[in-house]
Amino acid sequence: MTELVFQRHRRLRKTAGIRAMVKETYLHKEDLIYPIFVIDGENIKNPVASMPGVFQFSLDRLREEIDEVVSLGIPSVILFGLPAEKDAVGTQAYHDHGIVQQAIRFIKERHPGLVVIADTCLCEFTDHGHCGVVDADERILNDPSLDLLAKTAISQAEAGADIIAPSNMMDGFVTAIRHGLDAAGFADVPIMSYAVKYASAYYGPFREAADGAPKFGDRKTYQMDYSNRSEAIREATSDIEEGADMLIVKPALAYLDIIRDVKNNFDAPIVAYNVSGEYAMVKAAAINGWINEKETVLETLTGMKRAGADIILTYHAKDVARWLEEK
């Protein structure tokens, strides 16, 4: 009989203890950022139908959510705002008493150690739903939008935001915001740039949650084509050169190759945005009993870490924090 020569890789999988000993990638609470939607009004806790477990909170109901986040050991939140009024230039995005600015102050007063990230964009605040200034021909104007984005970032920093996270994908948005923050005395406030943001079908549930769907056209003239890979490096390079401190890749699940590319090319923290559509698909399948939600989520997020993400922005954060505590 011919002697078979092969490696016995299963030796290191024999027991749970051995598997834990050789485990390469770990998911920690400290890796998590939890998104929160704040809305103008009183006594509001609106469920987002397409995102089970996610709600819109008015300021007077925000305490219960923030206290839970802190009690679970989640170190950071990112805020998205739904204003009472919208206009063509998104005035409420940079008003000193805008809904996001009020929420930042509230959170920092109650939990000063919680890292508060401000999403810096105009789409939730404009009546047309686009991320910049629009002209009479429905073109999204790049350069006039930069001043408004810088104003928004400054107002968020003045309210106490620890990190500014611009998500608009206008050319030059990082340098405009960096110069604006520096000139306003906020040179120490870092920028977590949505550097690599694709025009994706996975954003659908978010647009319900944030009431931010465009009223005409789409965002393909400023968000990236999902077919493109090398373009991600060009975008990230520009943002690093312009002053970005951290880089976001969005979405995450269908873009693990992009996360790895960005990680391999840049010596900066990489954030994977586990977006609303990714969350909604898992939740829907779990509700129908088709998958094990806990194991699926932990596997998915660990895959993002393995691909190169240092930080994960996810709507699953509260559940994950509980599951990690159990383990």
Rank of each mutant, 00 (worst) to 15 (best):
P269Y: 08
A268P: 03
Y279K: 12
G308S: 07
Y315S: 09
H316I: 00
W290D: 12
G308M: 06
N292A: 10
A286I: 09
Y273W: 03
V320A: 13
A268N: 07
A309M: 11
K283I: 01
A268R: 15
D310T: 10
V275T: 11
G277V: 07
K294S: 06
M304L: 15
V282M: 12
V320D: 12
A309Q: 11
I291L: 15
L301G: 13
W323G: 12
E293S: 06
I287V: 14
Y279A: 12
E299K: 09
A272R: 05
I291Q: 09
A317R: 04
K283V: 01
M281K: 02
V271G: 04
E326R: 14
T302Q: 08
A285S: 12
V282Y: 02
G303S: 04
N288M: 13
H316L: 00
P269W: 07
H316G: 01
K305V: 14
G289F: 03
N292F: 01
K305T: 13
V282P: 01
V320C: 13
W323Q: 12
E293G: 05
H316Q: 14
G303F: 01
G308F: 03
V275N: 08
L298E: 13
A286P: 05
A272Y: 01
A280T: 14
E293A: 07
N274V: 02
A286S: 15
T302K: 09
A317I: 05
S276E: 06
G308L: 05
Y279H: 12
L324Y: 11
A285R: 00
I291R: 10
G289L: 06
T314W: 01
S276D: 05
E293T: 08
Y279E: 10
I312S: 01
Y273R: 02
A286R: 08
E278L: 09
A321G: 10
G289R: 06
E325T: 15
G289I: 06
T314C: 01
K318H: 07
M281Y: 01
H316W: 08
N292V: 01
K294M: 10
E326D: 15
G308W: 04
I312W: 00
N292S: 14
